[in-house]
Amino acid sequence: MDMIITISSGFFLLIGSFLCFSGAIGLLRFPDFYTRMHAVGVTDTLGAGMILVGLMIISTDFLVFAKLAMVLLLTLLIGPTTSHVLAKAAFHNGLTPKSLSNQEKNNKEISSSNT
């Protein structure tokens, strides 16, 4: 039983770490604001979520489990919302996604200076 718990929690933790890591790379490598935000969103929700699940599996104390569950719920609720708000704010302030503005060179500068 212990074996299964350790392995499954390790599995979740690994996936979580991988997602966080890829999110970080995405933040650095993606071309414009919106795609970068997508990378961050992945880290925020899925990566952190997986790590929390992994930790929940190995937690022995019920209180710790419950607290982690609360944290997980909150991240699931807040993470996407903040991404949404950010994207909306950017869009309202006239930042266009890169694919829409490939013809105009100027926009590239705006997007890079704004991130």
């Binding site: 909150l74 609720l77 807040i78 919302t81 949404h84 708000v85 909306k88």
Partner: peptide, 12 residues
Amino acid sequence: QHLVIRIVAKML
């Protein structure tokens, strides 16, 4: 205009 955050905030 902020429908989504308003709802989430109400929950939070």
